[in-house]
Write a protein that binds this DNA or RNA. Structure first.
Length: 224
DNA sequence: GTCCAGGGCCTAC
DNA sequence: GTAGGCCATGGA
């Protein structure tokens, strides 16, 4: 079966099974950007705690975060872990938004995806995954987020080996799907949902995987 | 007490 | 170029 067909089927099966994910609930673009940094290497629950405390002490706008001292910011986001590194990253990110886009997200949105990605990656503490999450969920750019969950699912299904690089995984999705932002958002959320609830998370063997015959993880191979 | 979570950077080899 | 250590908290 061609990869394109498989990718389409994976999306359909996951969507049928888990339904609409309504991922990344946020009231503003800056909240999504901040959340993308705060959730690095931790659960969304811990990132949400930090985000909630941040919203109690600011309106989550670029200006209000900019006005905080870095030590105050560190204290507020402590629950998300790596708080010193993240506070530094947030401050540097704010500088980028001010200097390159005049703190205007509509203006920022008008830049080409590739250029925005380079700008984001220039911030110490923002890597490929975080940059793509910002582009996809914050700016609605059709780029695919590759996280550990996606790598595990795709490599265990034999579509790519797990030592393929980030671009290999990203191309697998972007080249085999229509360039529709909402599909990319939904698909990524479904992969995370699947990884957190299916055999990949809880059981050594997969017997009733919603991905049916596409997922052979833990099953004996047919000798045919 | 141990492991892992919606990462990324740095260093040594 | 890449494996391993490090950053840090919170919950299971």
């Amino acid at each position: 079966m061609k990869n394109q067909k498989k990718i389409e089927q994976i999306f359909e099966l996951l969507f049928q099974y888990y339904g609409d994910q309504f991922w990344w609930p946020a009231k503003s673009t800056s909240e999504i950007f901040l959340g993308a940094i705060l959730t690095q290497g931790t659960t969304w629950k811990n990132a949400e705690k930090a985000l909630s405390k941040l919203s109690q002490n600011s309106d989550l706008s670029i200006e209000s975060i900019d006005n905080m001292t870095i030590t105050f910011l560190e204290e507020i986001i402590r629950s998300s872990g790596y708080f010193r590194a993240k506070a530094r990253t947030i401050k540097q990110f704010i500088e980028l938004i001010k200097n390159l886009y005049d703190s205007d997200f509509d203006y920022m949105q008008s830049f080409k995806t590739e250029l925005l990605r380079l700008h984001l990656l220039s911030v110490k503490g923002i890597g490929e995954e975080t940059a793509d999450a910002m582009l996809l969920y914050g700016l609605n750019k059709p780029t695919f987020v590759i996280d550990n969950f996606t790598v595990r699912i795709i490599s265990r299904m034999g579509l790519l080996s797990n030592n393929s690089n980030y671009n290999d995984f990203q191309r697998l999705f972007t080249q085999n799907l229509a360039q529709v932002t909402t599909t990319f958002q939904q698909f990524h959320a479904l992969l995370v949902k699947h990884a957190q609830t299916s055999c990949l998370k809880t059981k050594p063997k997969c017997r009733n995987c919603c991905l049916k015959n596409l997922c052979t993880f833990g099953r004996k191979k047919n000798k045919s």
